[in-house]
Write a protein that binds this DNA or RNA. Structure first.
Length: 767
DNA sequence: GGGTCCCCGTTTTTT
DNA sequence: ACGGGGACCC
């Protein structure tokens, strides 16, 4: 990884004749102001659909076109590779050609690039490897093992999350507060974190958090190094600033301190990654952190109808912690306000999928391409019922997100082989594939290797060589290990002479890894073989093995092949930054959206859910359809729920509300639509609806001094409390059955056809 | 060293 | 309902 750049000070280009800037004419006044405010700290608050990316790319192009800095003196950071790629392409388009030397990339890729130059200052070598989540978990497990933790209470993923959050906040093991370190892992949190960091160093490895954390550590301890970078980057630009964590904020602040030309673009209302360490406070505090900052608001929305904007604005206005923006339609004088946002109540998740399916078919007949429609869900399990429905209807769809290519087990295995060939001392890669396929090297042998490696401070590969000279292993295991090491040496010998693609094929074949899947008769095996072929194809796009491995570490290629028509299915998180003509937002129910886990976190959790709702609504250009189901199967059990509070928060003038008959006030009566208001009916205390969700809903309505309309059939609901063990009952979905047991408001019923189920008593009637 | 059974957890997931 | 992982047994 050699960077062909020099940290020696370079003067900015001479301010000479400027090229004309026709791109400025394509901007509205606020956008133009944001582009032309080149000097000093600038905060661009860009609401959804207000041309954020255009501003960012035009500003970057403008900087270079105005000769304010050489491209190599400009740093532009994004969160995703996709955003970085897009920005690079658009800047090239604006300037009529690719720009060389520009530092444009993700936070992590940029930090990695810097860190490789100074790795030794934090005890690493420049060719350190970057661990992903899976490697990280394995390593933590190893480190935690000798500490005799209760791994039920402190599984490695919980520990990983704790370390990640510390790193997000820019905290090294030495900087963790005592109290905080102690309430992780039964008081051993700090010790474990330090041990993990030490182990990483021994392995010459970093996790994602380290890329930034190590940079900060270096900048703080070595003012000369920091000074070089500060002088180099005359301008710094940041995308999606609302998602920056504290470490990223510190990194930026340190880098921009010299020239103070830091421009951040973001939208506090779209901050949805708090759980991953994003700190909305960064953007809220920008003006205090960077005195004299220019603040520019982009509020002209070019995407959505007035009604969609009205609904979204009305919703987000319920949040307290925000800077405050109001989205206006760019075409404010237009007569057409657009269709109201539709809110529909349905019986259950199947009905919801049917309804959405019908709408999609109708919209398609009306001329909307399927790829212009999206179903945005809160949690990924929700996609299932829609997939089933779309399959039934024969409508093509694509699920965006899900397991990424490089996260697949077979790809990770193959990559581990390549890593181990490339870096003999990569212990995690060694661990992963030493007995895959089975070579007869089980736990006992591996433990011996680990023990030796640990005791002598050497890598597993080295330990393996030593152990062969002893009689520590049984002859069988020793032979297997010797053969394996010999193979590795053979492959390594070919690194120079052989082309890396051919080498990869050789390794995968000769190791027996491919054969392992050829022999495998499970239904997944053919797909896995296909993926391995794809991996080899991907390898061909890189110059050498090392370049490929760096790509694997830092780039998650989750790009979907666009082009083909199909409905888009994804989570709300996955939809950020995208837009569609029509957006379906199912599952707006208390407990699911807002999610119970967020509600448990209190006000901050709730506000983040609300921002997520806002993100969802603002994805829609023309139409948005919300829905909520009264019943839903969650983890196998039926659950009943009430509409999300967010539905009640939508301003009436932009919304049309309908619900299937009698949904929240008894059920089973046919015909027509219920009074729309009945959707919000909340029953009297003590009724069978006395569930946590109901209690929250009552508290919510009470706090707002809203009297929810009385349910119409309270008498009948109340009667359900009288259903006793032994009664014969009728359920809409499961038919008739006999009550075997009662647990609070849940009945254990043996249905004639549907078998034994647990259901809420409010959903059955005496038969 | 390898297979089987049971129990737990199950929101979101850029790098 | 369901999968992954750990404990337990052969």
């Amino acid at each position: 990884m050699s960077d062909p750049f020099d940290l020696a000070e370079v003067a900015p280009p001479p301010a000479g004749a400027l090229a004309p800037a026709p791109y400025l004419n394509a901007l509205n006044p606020e956008q133009r102001a944001a582009v032309e405010a080149l000097d000093g700290p600038v905060l661009v608050l860009a609401g959804a659909g207000t041309g954020k990316t255009r501003v960012l790319t035009t500003r970057l192009a403008h900087l270079i076109n105005m000769r304010r800095a050489w491209p190599s003196q400009v740093l532009a950071v994004t969160f995703t590779n996709k955003a970085a790629r897009e920005m690079r392409e658009r800047v090239a388009a604006l300037l009529g050609g690719a720009v060389d030397g520009l530092w444009l990339g993700t936070f992590h890729a940029t930090a990695a690039r810097m860190l490789r130059r100074h790795a030794e200052l934090v005890g690493l070598k420049p060719d350190f490897s970057i661990l992903d989540q899976d490697d990280q978990l394995r390593l933590i497990k190893q480190v935690a093992e000798p500490m005799h933790l209760d791994d039920k209470r402190w599984p490695s993923r919980v520990l990983a999350a704790a370390f990640d959050r510390w790193k997000d906040r820019g905290l090294t093991p030495e900087q963790i507060g005592r109290a905080e370190a102690e309430h992780v892992a039964d008081g051993k949190g700090g010790e474990l974190y330090a041990a993990y960091q030490d182990r990483l160093r021994v392995l010459n490895a970093c996790d994602f958090g380290d890329l930034l954390l190590h940079c900060i550590t270096i900048f703080r301890a070595h003012p000369d190094v920091l000074g070089q970078w500060q002088r180099k980057f005359r301008y710094v630009l940041v995308d999606e600033y609302q998602d920056a964590n504290v470490a990223q904020y510190l990194w930026l602040r340190l880098l921009a301190q010299q020239h103070k030309n830091l421009c951040v673009v973001g939208d506090d209302d779209q901050s949805i990654y708090r759980w991953r360490g994003a700190e909305v406070g960064n953007i809220l505090r920008f003006e205090q952190d960077f005195p004299g900052a220019t603040v520019i608001r982009l509020e002209r929305n070019y995407r959505s109808t007035a009604r969609i904007l009205g609904a979204a604005s009305g919703l987000i206005a319920h949040n307290r912690g925000r800077l405050g923006k109001t989205l206006r339609p760019a075409d404010a004088g237009a007569n057409d306000q657009g269709a109201p946002v539709e809110v529909r109540g349905v019986w259950d998740d199947e009905a919801e999928a049917r309804l959405v399916g019908e709408d999609i078919e109708q919209l398609q007949r009306d001329g909307h391409p399927l790829k212009e429609m999206a179903i945005l869900v809160r949690a990924s399990f929700q996609t299932r019922s829609f997939e089933e429905r779309l399959l039934t209807l024969g409508l093509p769809y694509r699920v965006i997100g899900g397991t990424r290519f490089y996260d697949r087990a077979e790809i990770r295995d193959a990559v581990a082989y390549l890593r181990l060939v490339n870096q003999p001392d990569h212990d995690l890669a060694f661990d992963r594939i030493v007995n895959l396929p089975r070579r007869g090297l089980g736990d006992t042998s591996l433990q011996a290797l680990h023990r030796i490696a640990r005791a002598q401070g050497i890598s597993l590969t080295q330990a393996a060589r030593r152990v062969l000279e002893t009689d520590e292993l049984r002859p069988q295991a020793r032979r297997a290990l010797r053969d394996f090491l010999a193979q590795l040496d053979l492959w390594r010998g070919k690194l120079v002479e052989m082309n890396h693609v051919a080498l990869a094929e050789t390794v995968l074949e000769e190791s027996g890894y491919v054969d392992m899947w050829r022999v495998d008769k499970s239904p997944e095996a053919p797909g896995k073989l296909e993926n391995l072929k794809e991996l080899v194809r991907a390898l061909a796009e890189f110059e050498n093995l090392a370049g490929f491995l760096e790509h694997v570490s830092l780039v998650s290629d989750n790009e979907q092949q666009a082009g083909e028509d199909g409905v888009n299915l994804m989570t709300l998180h996955g939809a950020k930054g995208l837009e569609f003509d029509v957006v379906f937002l199912p599952g707006w129910e208390e407990g699911l959206f807002p999610h119970q886990r967020s509600l448990d976190e209190g006000e901050a959790g709730l506000e983040e859910e609300r921002r997520l709702a806002y993100v969802g609504l603002t994805r829609a250009r023309q139409r948005a359809y919300l829905s909520h189901a009264a019943n839903r199967r969650v983890h196998g059990a039926w659950q009943s729920s009430i509409p999300s509070r967010f539905i009640a928060e939508l301003p009436d003038e932009h919304v049309a509300r309908t619900a299937d008959s009698g949904l929240y006030a008894g059920h089973g009566r046919g015909g027509g639509l219920a009074d729309p208001e009945s959707v919000f009916a909340v029953p009297a205390p003590g009724s069978t609806w006395d569930t946590p969700g109901q209690r929250r809903a009552r508290a919510f309505f009470a706090a707002r001094n809203v009297t929810p309309p009385a349910p119409r059939e309270n008498a009948r609901l109340a009667a359900n409390a009288a259903i006793a063990v032994g009664d014969r009952v009728f359920h809409q979905k499961f038919g008739t059955g006999r009550v075997l047991d009662r647990d609070g408001d849940k009945l254990d019923i043996d249905f004639q056809h549907a078998g034994r189920k647990k259901v809420f008593d409010s959903f059955v009637t005496k038969a």
